[in-house]
Simulated assay, not measured.
Amino acid sequence: MASADLPALTFGRSKGLGFDRVIIHPTKEMMDWLKNAQSALKAETRAKLYVGLTRARHALAVVYDPADREVVTGFTVFK
């Protein structure tokens, strides 16, 4: 949900822009790939995810509801 003072953009629309903080709502396929780079992810989708992941200057969050005690390598989980 977007707030009047906070932009909500698709990955494509965010290309070339920079933001202090970014929150990404990944698709299931994107999250599967973030958890395991051997998972299938179309090249176009991977490129769009890369754009989203590289927009943040200071902080990046990925919205994900992990299973109990699930560890996602490279991520700090906040509940």
Results as ranks from 00 to 15, higher is better:
24 I>V: 10
48 K>Q: 13
6 L>N: 12
76 T>F: 05
62 V>F: 08
16 G>F: 08
46 R>K: 15
47 A>M: 05
8 A>V: 09
78 F>Q: 08
3 S>K: 13
45 T>D: 13
55 R>W: 13
42 K>L: 03
76 T>C: 00
36 N>L: 00
16 G>P: 08
41 L>T: 04
10 T>A: 01
23 I>N: 05
69 R>S: 11
68 D>I: 04
8 A>Q: 12
52 G>H: 12
26 P>M: 02
10 T>D: 06
46 R>V: 01
20 D>E: 15
56 A>Q: 12
55 R>V: 02
39 S>H: 13
57 R>T: 10
8 A>E: 11
18 G>E: 15
37 A>L: 03
15 K>E: 08
76 T>W: 10
36 N>M: 01
51 V>Y: 14
34 L>Y: 12
18 G>M: 04
48 K>P: 01
3 S>R: 14
58 H>I: 02
41 L>H: 08
64 Y>P: 04
55 R>N: 06
75 F>R: 08
62 V>K: 09
25 H>Y: 15
51 V>F: 09
40 A>V: 03
69 R>Y: 15
63 V>E: 09
38 Q>C: 00
58 H>Q: 15
78 F>R: 11
69 R>E: 14
11 F>E: 04
8 A>D: 03
51 V>K: 09
77 V>F: 09
22 V>D: 04
74 G>V: 02
42 K>H: 14
46 R>M: 05
34 L>P: 10
63 V>G: 02
8 A>H: 12
3 S>I: 00
73 T>M: 07
71 V>W: 13
15 K>L: 00
30 M>G: 01
75 F>S: 03
72 V>M: 04
66 P>K: 07
36 N>H: 11
63 V>A: 05
29 E>R: 12
17 L>E: 09
67 A>S: 06
69 R>K: 15
67 A>D: 11
54 T>E: 14
16 G>H: 11
15 K>C: 00
79 K>R: 15
35 K>M: 05
45 T>L: 05
70 E>Y: 09
22 V>Q: 06
37 A>E: 14
42 K>P: 07
48 K>T: 02
54 T>Q: 12
58 H>L: 03
24 I>K: 10
52 G>N: 11
75 F>L: 00
75 F>W: 13
2 A>C: 02
42 K>N: 12
73 T>G: 06
26 P>R: 09
33 W>L: 00
6 L>W: 14
35 K>N: 05
48 K>M: 06
3 S>A: 01
24 I>R: 10
71 V>T: 12
27 T>F: 06
5 D>I: 01
2 A>W: 12
6 L>F: 11
59 A>C: 03
43 A>N: 06
4 A>T: 06
74 G>L: 00
75 F>Q: 06
3 S>Q: 10
67 A>G: 02
32 D>C: 01
74 G>E: 07
72 V>N: 08
52 G>F: 10
12 G>V: 03
15 K>V: 00
14 S>Y: 13
